[in-house]
Amino acid sequence: MRKILGLLAFIFLFSCNSSGEDVIMNSVNNKWGKKQEQKFNLEISDPQNPKNIIFVVRNNNEYPYSNIRFIVNFTNLQNKKKDVDTLNYVLAKPNGEWLGTGFGDTKEIFFQYKLNYKFPEKGKYEIGVIQAMRNDNLPGIEDLGVKIETAKP
């Protein structure tokens, strides 16, 4: 019994997130409306260290396409400067098999947004994401998130 408890404690300690990563997830409840901007608020305390900004998408078999398009509003809340990007990411192979990881119907996949990005100053930032697909209500997307990690040199 002690060996099992020791092993569980070991797994718990090493599975904790200690590598400078933050993940913010929003649930879109399998029906992402075209006008429902998903907002992610960031607090940057160490702008001298470059960051990787990564989108996290969880989709299921109800999603009707092999790709997803985003319109991203990246705003520095200190000076209100806004950058707008239109992005296209692939969710499935040509044969229809979903990319990403996961068991069952739900798959999770990571998409690079900004790599080695150096925030201009510390403070608050906002990332707003709008789905830019043809559907007014996009089925099959369960969650959307943003992962911020310290870039490795």
Results as ranks from 00 to 15, higher is better:
G140W: 04
K81Q: 14
E37D: 08
D22W: 10
G100Y: 03
R2S: 15
G6R: 10
Y89M: 02
P47N: 08
G33I: 06
E142V: 08
G140V: 07
N116G: 12
W98F: 10
K107A: 11
N116L: 11
K34D: 05
D85N: 12
P50E: 09
D46P: 00
G33L: 13
S45M: 09
L13R: 02
N17H: 03
V72S: 04
Y63R: 03
K114H: 02
V84R: 08
F119W: 06
N116W: 12
P50W: 10
I44K: 06
F12C: 00
A9I: 09
V84L: 07
Q38L: 07
D105I: 11
G102H: 01
L99H: 05
S19N: 09
T101M: 09
W32M: 02
G33V: 06
W32Q: 02
V146L: 10
S27G: 09
Q78H: 13
I44G: 07
K80N: 15
G33S: 13
R134K: 14
K82I: 10
I68L: 13
R2G: 14
N135S: 13
Y65E: 02
N59K: 08
D143N: 15
M1D: 13
A9T: 10
F70H: 00
V28M: 04
D143V: 08
Y113R: 03
E149N: 14
V23I: 15
I4S: 10
Y63E: 04
K93I: 04
C16F: 01
E126P: 05
K34P: 03
S45V: 10
R69P: 01
Q38S: 15
D143T: 14
Q38D: 07
N116D: 11
E108A: 13
D143F: 10
Q131S: 01
F111I: 03
T106F: 06
V23G: 00
E126H: 03
N79L: 09
N49T: 15
F70G: 04
S66T: 14
M1H: 15
F103P: 05
V129Y: 01
K3S: 13
Q78Y: 14
L138V: 04
P47T: 05
D105P: 00
S15Y: 02
T86A: 14
F119N: 02
F111S: 03
E21P: 01
C16R: 00
P120I: 08
V56E: 08
Q36N: 15
Y125N: 07
D83W: 07
V90G: 05
L77R: 08
M25L: 14
N29C: 09
G128N: 01
R134L: 09
N52C: 04
D83F: 11
V84M: 12
L115Y: 06
N79C: 08
K34V: 14
N17Q: 12
V57Y: 01
N79K: 03
I11Y: 00
A9P: 02
P50L: 08
V72D: 03
N137R: 10
K118N: 12
G102Q: 07
D85P: 00
E43H: 12
E142F: 06
L5T: 11
N41Y: 14
N41T: 11
S15M: 02
L91H: 00
K39Y: 09
N135R: 13
Y65H: 07
K80G: 06
F110H: 13
